[in-house]
């Protein structure tokens, strides 16, 4: 067992999980340092939940090894569970228990001392004093998430694993949720949070992008965008719709996506891209302006996903 005098909180290599012969998490390596908020991004079914479950000992990896808070994820999951707060993708507190009963249950399960005070404090921090005897099942989605978060940190974990915590929550509640996460991180808590909201990715210190079980990009948002090598041209004006049909499929054009009145045209080669767009603009005979723009994270992710999909098909075809 290594003693992390360094700041390593999660350090895993080669993590692999198969379900019925299908590889769902494939050779995943992940390093998370203390106090970091790491965004874990990827499309649905890419293996985010499965990876998180392996980190906190809910699933046994088929291959790979690593440590979580200096504890071996293969052999010390019982101790890991005590130090980790895990907020599941689906609300997994008891809907037929009241808020207070749920928190009380958690406090008891984690053997917290001074239980009534801890529960009361948590309720107060949530601002739910008046509703503490309401059934958890009767709360709105946003409140359920906040309750779940509060319950997951009540035992003061060192690492917080959040699995799509803001799915189906309105923007206001999402913002408050993220403010709270940053507050917790500032207090020294390490957070690994899965999401597929782009704006949430931008609120993370670092992101890791997983597709088809493999990590295909990692770094800060700026790094990930820069490394993608994509250029974007934004076309605006009256004839934007015609342009869309014209540039689609041309050499150098990979993605064409309307954003409001604008059109984002994205490609890996800046020169080829400009050529293609200029040609299309000439064909419609003006009425539009085309200017280089910033490439968005979403464009990068769509590209990564498409590339990974091709790779996945080739490798699965080879295997089968």
């Amino acid at each position: 067992m290594k003693e992390p005098g360094d700041d390593t909180v999660i350090s895993i290599v080669g993590l692999t999980k198969r379900f019925n012969g299908r590889t769902v998490v494939d050779d995943v390596a992940l390093d998370v340092r203390r106090g970091e908020i790491v965004g874990f991004l990827g499309p649905n079914g890419s293996g985010k939940t499965t990876t998180i479950r392996m980190i906190c000992g809910l699933l046994k990896p088929d291959a790979g090894s690593g440590t979580c808070l200096g504890l071996d994820i293969l052999t010390q999951s019982t101790r890991i569970k005590r130090e980790v707060g895990y907020m599941t993708q689906r609300f997994s507190f008891y809907e037929d228990l009241t808020i207070r009963e749920n928190l009380d249950f958690v406090a008891r399960v984690y053997d917290l001392d001074d239980r009534p005070r801890r529960v009361a404090e948590t309720i107060a921090r949530l601002g739910l004093e008046r509703r503490r005897d309401q059934l958890a099942g009767s709360l709105s989605g946003g409140w359920k998430q906040r309750l779940a978060l509060a319950a997951s940190v009540m035992h003061q974990p060192k690492l917080l694993l959040l699995d799509e915590p803001t799915a189906g929550v309105d923007p206001q509640a999402r913002r408050e949720f993220w403010d709270e996460i940053h507050r917790l991180a500032a207090e020294g808590l390490t957070v690994l949070v899965s999401t597929h909201y782009m704006d949430e990715a931008e609120r993370c210190h670092r992101i890791v992008y997983i597709a088809y079980g493999r990590i295909v990009a990692r770094g800060t948002v700026a790094e990930v965008i820069a490394r993608s090598g994509l250029s974007t041209i934004i076309v605006s004006g009256a004839n934007v719709n015609k342009i869309a049909a014209l540039v689609q499929g041309r050499d150098g054009v990979e993605q064409v996506a309307p954003f409001g009145n604008d059109l984002h045209v994205v490609g890996p080669d800046a020169a080829l891209l400009k050529q293609a767009v200029d040609a299309a603009v000439a064909e419609v005979g003006g009425g539009v302006t085309a200017a280089p723009g910033a490439t968005g994270l979403e464009d990068v992710f769509i590209r990564l996903m498409q590339q990974a999909s091709v790779a996945d098909r080739t490798s699965n075809g080879g295997k089968a």
Binding site: K81, Y86, T88
Partner: peptide, 14 residues
Amino acid sequence: ERGTLENLMATPAT
């Protein structure tokens, strides 16, 4: 069925 087992298993309860 309700998904609460995952939470329960993530706790230190044996």
